[in-house]
Design a protein around this nucleic acid. Structure first.
Lengths: 216, 216
DNA sequence: GCTTTTTGTCAACATCTGTTCACTAAAAAA
DNA sequence: TTTTTTAGTGAACAGATGTTGACAAAAAGC
């Protein structure tokens, strides 16, 4: 597969140019600006390719962006599915899940940074795609919660509300973690501890919640 | 004040150009791109002024951005101070505060949109400025909470954690509200109701919280 | 009134942008 | 092998960008 050291390949970089473009874009997002303000020429330059070569792989920059977005969420979804299957519904499930998730965030820093910056700064198309994905996670979490014995007496609206609360916080904490330097292990540990505490507090609130019907 | 139809005022737009530039930038942020990807020429064009006139008021675009940021937070701080003084610490304080805050968000949509988009997409300088401001709000909230009789037995770390939880959620809900169309009154009402529920749930969690020292 | 400072205009620059077109080498298909 | 398709190069375009400098009108100071 990865056989490149040929005798005199002057021009063609084989089929890996497409991935080089994606990697270059991701790289620039990490250490410079949000994707929305990257230029086509910038990306091709970093990929070590002439500007016009871009069009052999993507119709325009926004297509690259959507591909990158897809890549980001495909691996995330996959991890979430795995976590959801492995876990058993008890107290220390929380700690485990939190730890697994944030480790994943650290290992995929670039993709998360990309998503975070586009969540508000991107084009409407991109923003909607991201929000749809987040909404999906929220729904799945709500469904998972519905299966717990001590939760299944809540209305689906209440469950939805609780799931949204959790997702909101995890999102915020993820952003907080992404703001830290990659080397700042202490800070990252702090965020992780804070995350666990906050989620446990939410959990306490849930156990006390009485689903007061929409009175007004 | 607004006297323009004079005999032959060809050039000078009086002293209001500076504000026209800021308004133009804010306008473009609302209906187009994040501030970071606005061009100087674009802004001056919308302000009805020639590009070079810009330099009479700001050294460069990032200076305009910081001014805009300052303006955004100055009025916000002022509102928060007012809310904090008026309120009395009881149950329905929550509903009132939430309503006041989100009404303010709606009335200052442009500024909040500006801040939201820069929170992740902006330059490091701008991001830090915003985060510092948010941290300040969190600290003040923690201090307010410390004055409540049923909360003052918590450690300051716990209070900080709780305040962060609240702020995280309000931030997320604000962003959610900003994503809605300005005309979507129903959706906005929904967010408001969700906000109140979520905060009440957090409140329940707080009453149950035992400041378990870092056991493990 | 005159003078100075402020605040706008216009022309011009070098640079960067997205995109086109014609071209060629390599890889795949025949 | 020959042929065709794929994937790269390079020159050139029209347009937008930030910034400069010299100039002129209004506002402010005197």
């Amino acid at each position: 597969m990865t056989k490149e050291a040929s005798t005199k390949t002057r021009k063609p970089k084989r089929g890996q140019t497409r991935e080089a473009l994606m990697a270059a874009a991701l790289d620039l997002v990490v250490k410079k600006a949000p994707f929305s303000s990257l230029s086509l020429r910038e990306v091709t330059k970093r990929a070590g390719v002439v500007p016009t070569a871009f069009y052999r792989h993507f119709p325009d920059m926004s297509a690259l962006g959507l591909t990158l977005l897809d890549e980001s969420f495909r691996t995330l979804r996959q991890m979430m599915r795995q976590v959801r299957q492995e876990q058993t519904p008890d107290e220390n499930m929380l700690r485990g899940s939190v730890e697994t998730y944030f480790n994943y965030v650290r290992e995929n820093r670039a993709h998360f940074l990309f998503v975070a910056k586009e969540l508000f700064g991107g084009t409407p198309t991109m923003r909607n795609a991201i929000r749809r994905e987040i909404r999906m996670f929220t729904n799945e979490l709500a469904m998972d919660m519905a299966r717990f014995p001590f939760l299944n007496h809540f209305s689906s609206e209440d469950l939805q509300m609780m799931a949204a609360l959790v997702v909101n916080n995890v999102t915020a904490l993820t952003q907080e973690m992404l703001e830290l330097e990659e080397s700042d292990e202490f800070g990252q540990q702090q965020v992780l501890i804070a995350a666990e505490k906050q989620l446990r507090l939410i959990f306490l609130g849930v156990t006390q919640w009485k689903s007061s019907q929409p009175s007004s």
